[in-house]
Every structure is written in structure tokens, then in C-alpha cells.
Simulated scan of single mutants.
Amino acid sequence: MTTGVVLNGNDSDNQIDATVRLAHEASEAGLRSAWFGQTVGVDSPQLAAIVGREVPGLQVGTSAIPVFGRHPLLVSSQAQTAQAATHGRYHLGLALGTKHLTETGFGIPFERPIARLREFLTALRQLTETGHADFHGELLTATTALPARVPGAEAGVPLLVAAMGPQALRASGELADGILPYLAGPRALAEHIVPAVTAAAEAAGRPAPRIVALVSGVVTDDAHAVREKATERLAFYEQIPSYARVIELSGGRRAADVAVIGDEARVAAEVQRYRDAGATEVVFSGTEIAGDRDRRRTWDLLGSLAG
């Protein structure tokens, strides 16, 4: 089973340099993948390309780029460039985003998100697999007067979606290679998420989807204090309906209720629960909240579980 981490070098003088240093540490700990969130700051595909060049042992991925405010032609260019730079080790994660951030940040209406996701994935796969597109949808048009293939990029960048709701899971199973659920505990995965996306993939004649479970967690001896920090940090997600729903389906009330916090034995047992629930890969985020010592403990444990 692959294990990985979300790298966060935000609190530094140079985010790129700090992230590369963290990536070297993660690789040395035995971790197999590093993932990068997309904000309005650093460009995550560029960051993934840089890290992938600097740390050849790591798979690198974006988790995740919202489809609102982007176009498949531009995202394909970013993804193929990152894949060529890393010699096939880049994985592209997409997301619907949120109504609030879409409408306040981009000034565009958050309308028909599932339809937009379907059209985006359809056009994007044409571009990444063939270097050409001739797509005319209701919401998007993507055509190529010139080839859009990046030399050195393998055909078919892996496409993953941060999907957790029924409609998004259906679209992802039919059109993507897997999903990136976050704050979805083992119960939600086993009972709702994995069956839905797997059934959609089977019905579409596609291979079994990858389930890259993004888990907020850390190894620590001070679980109470770290959980308090996690409660404060993760409270934002409780205001977003899709996250609130999946937290409830996981048996939690607050987002921090599904965080994995404790000593090595407890965290290892929880990682196994995710695997039993259908996760093909487990990626930890938020490991920095407990400090460098506990972050390293967390990474060492996850590295030992990578095989």
C-alpha cells in the first residue's frame, strides 16, 4: 500500500525551498508520494514538477485544482509539463471547489458543478491522452488548432477527483482514474464512497478506481493538545456541506473527530482501518501542527507502513 503526505512549506521564508527540503525528508522516511494543495498562492503543478525533479524517488500530485475558473487546455498544459518534468510521476487532482470561494474569488456563478466536472474531465482526457481535443459541451469548449502534446509526457496523466457526494462519485467513476476523499473516515469510505465510485467505474467498463484517502493525522504523545489544534484548524470544513455530510457519515460531529491522532500503535491501527475500508493509498495531511519531532515520528511510521 502506498503512503504519502501533503507537504506544506507555507511558514517559511521561501516556500519552494522549504517544500523541497520537506520532500527530501519524506523520501528518506520511506514515504512514496508527496501531494500539494492548490491555493491562490503557489501553483501546485509547478511545485510538484520542481519537487519531482529534485526528489526522484517520490510520486507527486496535486490535491486539488478547482475546475471553476480554469480551462481544460490550460490545466492540460500544466499537467503534461509536470509529468514530463517528473518522467511520469505526476498525478493531477481536480475538485469542484466551493460556492463561496468560486463566487467571491473568481466572480463567477457556482452553477451546475457536476455538469462542469463531467465536461472538464471529458475534454481534459482527450488532451492528455491524444494531444488533441474537439469538445463542444454546454458549458465548455476545447479545441486544438495546434497539437497540445508536451514531448516527454506519457499519454494519459492520471486524473483524480476530490469527490465524496453521490453525483461527483458517479462522474469520477465513469470519467476519472480515482478519487481523493478528505475527512472521510473508514465508515464513510466502506459504506458509501468506495461502493459508489467502484460501481460507477464497473458500469462504465473502467478499471477499479484508485482511492487516495487524505487523512488529517499525526503521531504524538500529547493527543489532547494536538486534537485541540486540529479542532481549530479544521473547523472551516464544517461550514462546507459536502464535508459536513461526510464527517457525519464517518460517525463524527466535528471535523477533528475523524482526525487520526495518537501514538504509533493507534495511528498504525487507523491506517489499517482505512486500508480495510478500500483505500488504495493513504496520505496524511496536517502533520506539522504538532511540531517537527512529531512530524518526523509520523513520517517514519507511515514510511514503515508503505510496503
Rank of each mutant, 00 (worst) to 15 (best):
L302S: 13
A200F: 09
A268T: 00
T280P: 09
H87I: 00
S63T: 02
V282C: 12
Q59V: 13
Y182M: 09
G41I: 04
F68R: 09
Y274M: 02
A265I: 02
D17A: 15
V51D: 14
Q46Y: 03
D300Q: 11
V212R: 06
L301I: 13
A290P: 08
A235C: 03
T128R: 08
F110K: 04
G52A: 13
A204Q: 06
A162E: 02
N14I: 07
E129Q: 11
A200M: 10
V226Q: 06
G137V: 15
L73T: 03
T98P: 04
R293S: 15
A95D: 09
R210S: 08
T198H: 07
N10E: 09
A123F: 07
V219D: 04
A259Y: 03
G252M: 04
Q126I: 13
S304G: 15
H136W: 01
P151E: 15
S172Y: 05
G178N: 05
R245C: 08
L140G: 06
E238F: 01
D300M: 05
E154I: 14
T19W: 01
P66I: 10
L121P: 01
A85Y: 04
R210V: 02
D11V: 07
Q59L: 14
Q167Y: 00
V5T: 14
A142K: 01
G185K: 00
A184K: 01
P147W: 12
D17S: 14
A163W: 00
S250A: 08
G137A: 15
T220C: 06
